[in-house]
Amino acid sequence: MADYDASSNRVTLKVVYYGPALSGKTTNVVALHDMLSPQSRGEIMMFETRQDRTLFFDLLPVGFRTRSGMLVKLKLYTVPGQVAHDSTRKAVLSRADGVCFVADSAKSQSVNNAESFENLEANCRRVGLDFERLPLVIQFNKRDLPDPVPEKDLRDRWSAAPWPLHMATALTGQGVQQTFLDLMARSVESVARELDDIGAVAVTADEIRDGFLTLAKGR
């Protein structure tokens, strides 16, 4: 839930990278970190085990000021993909304004992808997020694998679903920015609607979206 603080003239957004273990969520966020200018990004927080498995979460803070001087702050999280960390996953997902579901393109990972997606839906229900209305984009990562599930198959399989599909290779950064900007566009729209509802803030969706666009280009 977008958080608007009038006294400090600040709006805070939260997006979460969700998905099965080892699908490349952390790699996505690290790639984004490298794409953003140092002024617009805060210190990345990563809590990992020795095997590079996310233990609690990764957090990349991003921020910029609109022309009117309002601070727009984005908190970009990844959840731990391992099944055992469900309570942590749930806490991190709580109050999200948008979700990027990072799936693994390897043929062997279809079941893990599906189970994690079901888990996302279940946890949305648990933390009170309306899954039907949640801004959500799907990313199929690791397109560079020798024998990934063909894109056509994926598009056929997901054709009935309302969410956009993105193909990416997070390791090289390919597709990471497009996924991120699409997610921001959708999240910002619903956040702007929310803020408009409470009549609290003089900021338009376009303004915030433009902010992120220039951020991404600005490096």
Partner: peptide, 14 residues
């Protein structure tokens, strides 16, 4: 809009 926050005491960790 969702209202549930952190699992235990209602204050989110972030």
């Amino acid at each position: 809009m969702e209202t549930t926050a952190s699992p235990s005491d209602g204050t989110p960790f972030d």
